[in-house]
Every structure is written in structure tokens, then in C-alpha cells.
Simulated scan of single mutants.
Amino acid sequence: GSLIYTGIAPGVSWTAGSALSILLLGLILWAFEPIPFGMTSMVIMVLLVMLQTVNIDVMLSGFSSPAVFLVVAGVMLVQGVGQTPLIQRISYGLVYKLGTSLRRLFIGIFVLIQFLAFFIPTNSVRATLLLPLATRVVDSIGAE
């Protein structure tokens, strides 16, 4: 952390410089993966508090956001759908209605994404749902 901090411009405040150096350290740890991702996150959070970059209340405030629970609950729901035959039924229904033309299937999946936006507000959850769906559709028509 201090090695990275010394390379930062001298006019940068301690808070900004330490935050930037911790960010760069985190990127290096995520890129080369010497420790697991979850452990890297814990190291970053501990460094942020120990180096007095942020207050512990500020650091933990993101965990109390309702958006975090929305995304976690949505991903859990999608994983449940992915482990049941429902995703297979939806993919077969798309192929049945749209045929085996890749162009029509692409347009159908695009329209489905827009339709799901009304019910699933987060992009990450929609992507998590549509990835196995699109994979099943491609597998069901035998395309690569």
C-alpha cells in the first residue's frame, strides 16, 4: 500500500492518496488472484478503516442499502429458476413461437429483455436470467 502511495502526486491529500493506493492494490489482488476474491474484499475494507481513509460507518453504509438486497434477492430468484425446468420451458416456448431463425430469436430475446425491464429493474439480475435462457435456446436449435 505505501509503495503505491509513494508513486502518487505530492499534492494529493492523505485520504485521496490512500484510497487510490488501496484501490490499485485491490485491482492488483483481483487481477493476479493470490488470495480469493472474498478475502481481497475483506483486506480492502480493513485497510480502509485502519489507514483512516474512511470512517467505519461510511464504509459499512453500502451494506444497509436496499439496492443491495434487491440485487441479492433477484440473483437468488434467478438461480432458483435456473435450477428448475422453468428456464427450459421458456426457452422451448421461444423457439416454438419464433422458429429456428437466429435473427428472429435474437429479436425475440431482445424484446424479452425489454419486457423483463418492467418487472426486474436491475440489469445484472436480467443478465443473470437471460444468459442461461439464451444458452438453452442456442442449444435447443443446435446453433453454435
Rank of each mutant, 00 (worst) to 15 (best):
T135Y: 09
R89Q: 08
F106I: 07
S65V: 03
G62H: 06
I35A: 00
D57S: 09
V49S: 08
L60T: 14
G108N: 07
A19Q: 04
T100G: 10
G142M: 01
P10F: 01
A31Q: 11
A134L: 15
I28K: 06
Y92S: 10
E144Y: 12
D139T: 05
M39V: 15
L105S: 04
M50S: 12
I28Q: 10
L105G: 03
D139V: 00
G11D: 14
Y5D: 13
Y5G: 11
T100I: 08
L105C: 03
I35K: 01
R104F: 10
L25I: 11
L27C: 11
M76P: 00
S64F: 13
K97L: 12
I107R: 09
T128R: 12
G82E: 09
L60M: 15
I35E: 01
G108C: 05
P132H: 01
L29Y: 03
Y96V: 06
L70A: 09
S140Q: 12
A16T: 14
P10Q: 06
V95L: 03
L116N: 01
Q52V: 08
F110Q: 08
G1F: 09
I113Y: 15
S64H: 04
V125H: 04
L86M: 11
S124N: 09
P36F: 06
A143V: 02
G7R: 10
G80M: 07
L24C: 07
L3V: 12
F110P: 02
V78E: 00
I28R: 07
Y92K: 14
P36S: 09
V138I: 15
L130R: 02
L102S: 14
